Amino acid sequence: MQPQKMHEMVKPLQWLMGTWKSISAKVMYPTMKTVDFEEKLCFLSAGQPLLNYSSTTWNPKDKAPMHLEYGYLRIDEEGCLVALLTAMNFGISTVEEGTLQEKSLTTNSKSIAHTKFAKMPVVALQRCYCLNDKCQLSYTLKMQTERTPLSTHLECLYEKEEEKS
């Protein structure tokens, strides 16, 4: 999808808009060993009062796809409340809500749906995106399952890809 003109309502999210490539990315959990991965993260405007969201991850050694996520990031009229709607290739979809403060966005799951055969039933998610003083995007995802308390699952750092003219 080609980025479109930004809708007025998403201007508070302008710092997040674009395509981001991981500099470092790790997946971890109390029930697994830490693994490196690579990721392309996109928050793009379609000219609507929301951003299209996608996340594609792959194994850095053999480039095999790992986790895929697609969805939408919405913002309220006051520009401080957000909702992230996602669908994942592991058979999970979420509705997450949170807050936007300056160059930081935090969401917590409000609803999580699973396919009958999803590997690990997730009961809670918490995400935090933050733009640092080097214009790098940091991202932390915490996850809770039926057997494991809310724990860090992903830690990533991204740099923005240059826009093609």
Score class of each variant (00 low, 15 high):
Val27Asn: 00
Gln144Trp: 02
Arg127Ser: 10
His153Gln: 10
Arg147Tyr: 15
Thr99Gly: 05
Thr34Tyr: 03
Thr31Trp: 08
Leu100Lys: 01
Lys110Gln: 15
Thr106Leu: 05
Cys135Asn: 15
Val123Cys: 09
Gly71Gln: 04
Glu161Asn: 10
Leu44Lys: 04
Ser165Glu: 14
Met6Val: 13
Phe37Pro: 00
Leu157Ile: 13
Glu38Ser: 07
Met120Thr: 15
Glu159Val: 10
Leu16Ile: 05
His67Phe: 13
Met120Phe: 12
Val35Tyr: 13
Asn89Leu: 02
Asp62Arg: 00
Leu131Met: 15
Ala46Gly: 13
Tyr53His: 13
Gln2Lys: 15
Lys116Leu: 14
Pro60Ser: 00
Ala124Val: 08
His67Pro: 01
Arg147Cys: 13
Gly47Asn: 13
Leu105Ala: 06
Ser24Tyr: 12
Leu131Ser: 03
Gln136His: 15
Leu154Trp: 03
Val95Gly: 09
Leu51Val: 01
Ile92Gly: 02
Thr34Gly: 03
Glu78Tyr: 07
Gln14Met: 11
Phe117His: 12
Lys61Glu: 06
Asp133Ser: 11
Met88Tyr: 07
Leu81Phe: 09
Glu78Thr: 14
Thr145Asp: 14
Pro12Ile: 05
Thr86Gly: 04
Val27Lys: 02
Leu81Cys: 07
Cys42Gln: 15
Gln4His: 15
Ala113Met: 13
Leu154Gly: 00
Lys21Trp: 11
Trp20Ala: 00
Thr31Gln: 10
Leu81Glu: 15
Tyr53Gly: 11
Lys164Thr: 14
Gln101Ala: 10
Lys33Trp: 03
Leu81Asp: 14
Glu77Met: 06
Ser151Phe: 04
Trp20Met: 03
Ser93Arg: 11
Gly71Phe: 02
Leu85Phe: 11
Glu97Tyr: 04
His153Trp: 03
Met143Arg: 12
Leu13Lys: 06
